[in-house]
Design a protein around this nucleic acid. Structure first.
Lengths: 336, 336
DNA sequence: AGAGAAAATAAAAACGTTTTTATAAAATTT
DNA sequence: AAATTTTATAAAAACGTTTTTATTTTCTCT
C-alpha cells in the first residue's frame, strides 16, 4: 500500500540510510553481520530503490531510447528485435518511443534520463535539433540518414548501390524499358535508390526518362492506385520491368498489374527492396535486394556504446545489401 | 557541453528558481513581463527540465511500460502499434522493455517510474510477483492471462471458443479425423484452444483421441519437423484435417505436408489461428480464426487508464475472434 | 495616509537516492 | 600504554525539480 523507501529500511534495521545504501551497493564498506540484517529487512519489506532518485543522483541511466514514428511493418520489428538483444547483452535497456511529436521527442532526448538516443525513420529532426543535441553532449545514432560528428553516429544501407545493382540485373535479363517507383518523398533510401537507378541506366547506355518515374510512397495501396492509373491512361508502350521503392510497393504494383490482366513475371518483371518476410510468401515470390536489417540494429548499438563508454568520436557506417533472386523477374521474351 | 539546470536560468534571469519553475508550469503565478524574460532565457540557454528531478517530485510519470520477452512476429507489432497510438492519444508514453530477466522486470515495475505496466506473453511472472505488485499499489494489465483484482486487469481472447468454432467448421465440411497441433506448453491460448477443440469434438459426437495431438510450439520449423516425422512414421490413416496452434504453425504444417507429396487443401485441410499478415499472402491463403489484436491493445490501455486515473477496480476483458474463410480448408472428398 | 488585501517574488522543504565527509570503535603499531 | 591506522557507522551534502510557506511590493479601500 505505502511506498517504502530507504528510510523505512534504515529505521527497521536500526541503522542509518547511508549504511543501507552501502549494504546494497558497496558490500565491502559494511560489516557482514549488519549487511545480512539489512538485506533481511529489505527482503521482508520488499524494498525496491526508486529509480528516479537513483538516476537523479547518478546522471547515467543505462537506458537507450529509440524514437520512431511507426512501429509497424516487418522492417521495424526485425530491426528492433536485434537492438533489444544487443542492448540486453550489454546491460542496457532499450526504450521505444513512438511519436511524431517533436516536442515530446526533444524533451525526452534532452531530459537526460537516457544515455543515448536512436532516431529511426519517419519524422524529421532537422539541423537545428541536431545542433541542440550536439551541444548537450548527448549521444545520438541515426538509422535513417548518413551523418557523423563528435556525438552523432549513423548506420544505414548503401541504397545507391542497391538501385544500381537492380538495374544491372534487369538489363542482363534483357529489359530496357525499366520504370522506377518512388518511395516517400523525404526518405533518404528512396532518393538514393533513384540515384543508383539513374547511374545504372547510364552504365548500361540507356537514357533516363522522367516519364518512367512513378509515385509509390512505399505504400501498397498508394502504389496500386498509381500503377492502375498509369496502365489505364498510358500512351507509352508497356514497360518491361518495374523497380519498386520497396517490397510493399512491389506487391501493390503486382496486384495492380494482375488486375489489369498482365501476369508477373511473364509479361512484366517487378523488383522490390528490403526482403521483408512476406516477400518470400507472396505469389510470385519477390525478387528483391535484401538489406541486413538485424545487422544494422546490432551495429547501431555497438556504435552507440562506443561513444558512450569509450568516449569515441561518432562514426558513419554503411551496410551493403545483396540481391535475392526469386520469381518476380524473368528474361524479357519480347526481344528488342 | 555543460548541463544547464533551472539554477542557471534563474541566475541569468535575475530571479529565484521558484519563479522560473512557476513561469514554466503555473503561468498565472508570475508577472507577464518577468515570465517573458524568463522564457527568453530558457530559449537562449536551451534549457530542458531534467526528467528525473521532475518525476522524483511528482511521483507520477505519465509513462506506461510494456514487458515482453519477444518483439518479433506480426502479432506483437500489431498489438504494440495499437497501444502506442492509444497511449499517445491520452498523453501517455509507452516504454517497451524486452527482456526475460525477472530481476530487471521487477526492479522496473517496482522502481516507480512507471504509472502502470503491461505484461505480454513469454516469461512467467508468478503469483508471488503478482502479490508484490499488488501490495505496492502498482497498476498492471496482463495481455496473456485472465486475471483481475484491485490493481490488476487483463484483456485476452476467447481461445476456447476459437478452438470450438474451428472444429465445428471442419466437421461441417465433412472432416472427422481432425488433428490438433499444440502451441507453447505454458501458453494460455494453446491450452484454451485445446480445451475448445475437445469440447467441439464432443459436441459433434466425435471421440477425442490422444494420438491426434501433436507438438508444434507455435513455431514454423518445429511444426515442420513434427509433422514430417509424423507422416513418415504414422501407422494411422492420414488425417482429414489439422488445426494448428497458430498461423505460423499452420504454415510449417502445410510445408511439411507438401514436401511429403500431399496437397492442401485437396488431400488435407489445415487451419490456423490469429490471422497474421502472411496468412493472406501464403499459398494457399490460410483459413484461420482472426483475433482482434489491435482491439486488444486499445482496450488494454483503456482498462489501464481506468485504474490509474479513475481509481477503478481492475477488470478482466475477453474478446471474441471470428472465422476467416480462405483457401486452406475444403470439403472432405473421401466421404465417410 | 494608513490599514488591509492582492500580487509578485523569494526562501525553504521535500521527493529518494548516492557520495563525501565526519565520527566512533576496534585493531595495530611504536 | 599511547599513538596511529583501520574498520564500521552516521551525518550531511548533493542531484534538479516542485510545492509550500514566507516575505516583499503594489494596489485598493476607507
Amino acid at each position: 500500500m505505502s511506498k517504502i523507501t530507504i528510510k523505512d529500511v534504515a529505521r527497521e534495521a536500526g541503522v542509518s540510510i547511508s549504511t543501507v545504501s552501502n549494504a546494497l551497493n558497496n558490500a565491502k564498506l559494511v560489516n557482514e553481520e549488519t549487511r545480512k540484517r539489512i538485506l533481511d529487512v529489505v527482503d521482508r519489506l520488499n524494498y525496491t530503490p526508486n529509480l528516479n532518485g537513483k538516476l537523479l543522483k547518478a546522471g547515467k541511466s543505462k537506458m537507450l531510447g529509440l524514437f520512431t514514428s511507426t512501429v509497424s511493418g516487418p522492417y521495424f520489428y526485425t530491426l528492433v528485435e536485434a537492438m533489444f538483444r544487443e542492448c540486453e547483452r550489454n546491460g542496457y535497456a532499450l526504450n521505444v518511443f513512438a511519436t511524431r511529436d517533436k516536442k515530446v521527442i526533444m524533451s525526452n532526448i534532452l531530459g537526460k534520463n537516457l544515455d543515448g538516443v536512436f532516431v529511426f525513420e519517419g519524422y524529421r529532426i532537422g539541423t537545428q535539433e541536431i545542433e541542440l543535441i550536439e551541444n548537450e553532449n548527448i549521444k545520438v545514432t541515426f538509422l535513417d540518414r548518413k551523418i557523423a560528428s563528435k556525438n552523432i553516429s549513423s548506420v544505414i544501407f548503401d541504397s545507391y548501390k542497391a538501385g544500381f545493382d537492380a538495374v544491372k540485373y534487369l538489363v542482363n535479363l534483357g529489359h530496357r524499358k525499366i520504370y522506377f517507383i518512388l518511395g516517400a518523398p523525404d526518405a533518404y533510401d528512396s532518393a538514393e535508390r533513384l540515384r543508383g537507378y539513374k547511374a545504372g541506366l547510364e552504365e548500361c547506355g540507356i537514357a533516363f526518362k522522367e516519364e518512367y518515374v512513378i509515385e509509390g510512397m512505399f505504400e501498397e495501396q498508394f502504389t496500386y492506385n498509381s500503377i492502375s492509373t498509369f496502365i489505364r491512361f498510358r500512351d507509352l508502350e508497356m514497360p518491361d520491368a518495374f523497380i519498386a521503392g520497396n517490397d510493399i510497393s512491389a506487391i501493390g504494383c503486382i496486384k495492380a498489374l494482375r488486375d489489369k490482366g498482365f501476369s508477373v513475371p511473364e509479361d512484366v518483371s517487378v523488383m522490390g527492396f528490403d526482403d521483408v518476410v512476406v516477400a518470400e510468401y507472396f505469389q510470385p515470390p519477390l525478387t528483391t535486394v535484401r538489406n541486413p536489417i538485424a545487422r544494422q540494429g546490432m551495429l547501431g548499438v555497438e556504435v552507440m556504446l562506443k561513444m558512450i563508454e569509450e568516449e569515441k568520436h561518432g562514426q558513419a557506417e554503411v551496410l551493403e545489401g545483396n540481391l535475392v533472386v526469386r520469381g518476380s523477374c524473368t528474361m524479357n521474351k519480347r526481344a528488342h
